[in-house]
Write a protein that binds this DNA or RNA. Structure first.
Lengths: 346, 346
DNA sequence: TGTTGGCCTGGTACCGATAACATAGTGGTG
DNA sequence: CACCACTATGTTATCGGTACCAGGCCAACA
């Protein structure tokens, strides 16, 4: 039913602004003015135009408009996965900050592959976004090149890259994990295990592992209990499987730290299923402060990242850059607060 | 840094196809042909053109192209929430089915409000998508009107509306819930409770509640143990709070059925926290077969919906309609399989 | 050798809006 | 009453591509 035949037997051609203008007895230009509440149009003319629009079922063709105005009215945001409440909180933050700016969000996801990110960036750029928000600081050289020469503002998030493309709103995943490990060491834990994904694909994951190892080295504690399980993002199920391997190999592990709350939750449930007490027999901690961690039984100790704020502030920076209102006193790098949330599991 | 000043001191103006043509010593038309692998262009010319593109850092402006070709190359999908693995599975199904069709997915989310859906549909339509995928069958009259007269194929999903706009790929939420209740009644449960969101806003949620009540009425069992808690989508936390109210009010409740696995999980964890045995003291069931339900302890009995398939098939139908390859022997309504997954919690 | 047909390539006219400037009317002011 | 500032509207020229048609070139064939 490509030619949708329901309601009214509509004309094969969609009406254009010229049709509206003819019907309202004015010129195209006046219609254009009436639609963008900027121009000076008399109340009566405006009424006629809106009546004509209603009768014809006219919908503005924005792509035609952007060709001449050079404003497409959207920004692109690229996240690793939409099925992850951390990133969807960030997306919400972006959407909220963009409200009332006339800017729309176009969301794309990469499945944690920077090659897919490259393809996505190129596809987005063909539609001429007015700005781009990326997740993470690792990109292909071509992605960097495309974005640098696109002449639009770019904000990298969820990371603090050493060589930013443009602006940054994020935090150090390494430091955040270090903070958690240090806190747990203070609580008396000594034999730390780490569960994460296999490859380097999830760069934020590997940075967290680095932070884990760094602190243990500083404290003179062994940092070799590492289980890598599956391609990132590692799931609840994989967290469960990984903790089994961990305890089979190093049965005296004090505390298991997981790359995210999802895997921590899997590990926790698997331990409970096997009759282990958490945290008495083995403690568990996660990362990201997902809702599941706050309401599981026992509740999971984790690191809270202000995901929503990341999105909101990234979008505010983008908006200011686009509208040329960028505050020069602000640096181009903005750090987001992270904090350890101590709960029952560790 | 709106004028991105890093890498190279780039020209203020982005290069256009005419620049590429000039540099390659051909006409714009030939460049256009070389970029869309359809036209006949000699190997050497093509090489020159690609070299010129590379040197200039040219990126095609698709919005200009679509103006004259009348093909924008994207479809819009509108989901209630991106932070919900059911819908993001559907989104993945759409993305996968669109691969290699030259069609891109533009995702929008409504936060479960049909007014926001209306705004979103209008915003999308201004960009002239080649097709639209909606979640659910309830829309504002204006949304329906806009879509019917847009002259593009539309697929409604996750529901079986009585008066479809165009095509449908979904299932009956009422029947799916009825299936679950019937199965649990067969297992011997008699005193059923239901936990869901408050308003009619989440239409799929209310349909599920209707299915719940219908079956209990048919079986001559009381169907009045209903707890409504919070605006949809109800969260893990709200599931926990609701089960507390439920058991305070009707302490002898056999089994608690939740509108989704997330609230079921919250209820389950809260029961465990209070020392209740599940399913011995109270059984719990959910809906949607989320990962959290499969790996919690105990595992949660639920209804599995083929979310990914919903997306994939909706996109296939859209694609066929757009390319004019729609198989007329296929009806315009496609039902997705649903099945009860019996696990430990009920 | 003339004709035919296929492969490349170019020229021109748009696609549907907006920018920029021009113009007509209107009321207030000295 | 001429002049000015201001409002409301129209005209023209694009924006950056693609559709469509025309034409040049060359090999194959009669």
């Amino acid at each position: 039913m490509s030619e949708n035949s329901s309601d009214r037997p509509q004309d094969p051609q969609q009406p254009t602004m010229a049709d509206v203008a003819r019907r309202a007895g004015v010129s195209k230009m006046t219609v254009s003015r009436a639609l963008r509440h900027n121009g000076a149009v008399s109340a009566e003319t405006r009424r006629n135009i809106h009546a004509a629009i209603e009768e014809l079922g006219y919908v503005l063709d924005q792509s035609a408009g952007s060709l001449s105005s050079k404003r497409t009215g959207f920004v692109a945001a690229i996240v690793p996965s939409i099925n992850n409440s951390n990133f969807s909180d960030t997306a919400r933050g972006i959407t909220d900050a963009l409200e009332d700016t006339g800017l729309q969000l176009l969301l794309g996801y990469t499945d944690y592959a920077i090659e897919r990110e490259e393809k996505l960036v190129e596809a987005m750029l063909r539609r001429r976004p007015e700005g781009v928000i990326l997740t993470g600081g690792s990109h292909t050289p071509r992605t960097r090149k495309l974005l640098s020469s696109a002449g639009i503002p770019v904000v990298e998030t969820w990371d603090v890259p050493s060589d930013p493309i443009d602006q940054v709103v994020g935090f150090s995943n390494e430091d955040a994990m270090a903070l958690l490990v240090r806190k747990l060491a203070e609580k008396g834990y000594r034999r730390f295990g780490y569960i994460g994904g296999t490859t380097e694909r999830d760069t934020r994951g590997s940075q967290r592992r680095t932070g884990f190892q760094r602190v243990l080295n500083e404290l003179g504690l062994p940092a070799d209990r590492l289980i890598s399980f599956g391609a990132p993002p590692i799931s609840i199920e994989q967290g469960g499987q990984a903790v089994v391997s961990m305890l089979a190999r190093w049965p005296d592990t004090d505390v298991v730290i997981c790359v995210s709350d999802l895997s921590a939750f899997g590990a926790l449930m698997e331990c409970r299923r096997r009759g282990l007490r958490v945290p008495e027999d083995v403690a568990i901690a996660g990362f990201g402060n997902f809702e599941v961690a706050a309401y599981s039984h026992p509740r999971i100790t984790t690191v809270d990242v202000e995901c929503y704020e990341i999105g909101r502030r990234a979008a505010v920076r983008l908006r200011d850059a686009i509208l040329g209102q960028r505050d020069p006193s602000l640096g181009s790098i903005e750090l987001i607060r992270i904090r350890v949330v101590e709960r029952e599991s560790a």
